[in-house]
């Protein structure tokens, strides 16, 4: 469950690069360990986030997952569908369950993201 076309972070976020923009969500592994997701808090569009900054929260009944911005940039779009139906993240983490999109400020940061292979290694390591 680690799509090849995406990049990843150690915090279990995925990034889809689409000419200058980065669409962000949480991975299958992350949604599974959280359990039934019941609430999502998204950043306001227009917010400028630094890499590693906390930008969103994903909650299950008994756990809270913080989502850190995988890249620096401006939030240009958020997914209204997940706010209304947080279970989309459980059902389709890499598709309809996306959280927000960023305008990438520094292309070099993209290089630091994990490849699918590296992320798979991380999962095997129990991380």
């Amino acid at each position: 469950m680690v799509p090849k076309e995406l990049r990843y972070t150690k915090e279990h976020e995925w990034v889809r690069l689409e000419d200058g923009r980065a669409r962000v969500g949480i991975t299958h592994h992350a949604q599974k360990s959280l359990g039934d997701i019941v609430y999502v808090e998204l950043p306001p569009p227009g917010r400028v986030a630094k890499k590693g900054e906390r930008v969103a929260t994903v909650e299950s009944v008994k756990a809270v997952g913080e989502v850190f911005s995988p890249l620096s940039g401006k939030v240009v779009e958020v997914n209204p569908a997940v706010a209304a139906s947080p279970d989309l993240i459980n059902k389709d983490p890499y598709g309809q369950g996306w959280l927000f999109a960023l305008e990438v400020a520094d292309a070099r940061e993209v290089e630091a993201l994990l490849s699918p292979e590296a992320y798979e290694e991380l999962l095997k390591g129990g991380g």
Partner: peptide, 9 residues
């Protein structure tokens, strides 16, 4: 068993 997810959603 009670549906806690529903109570939260």
């Amino acid at each position: 068993r009670l549906d806690e997810a529903r109570a939260a959603r």
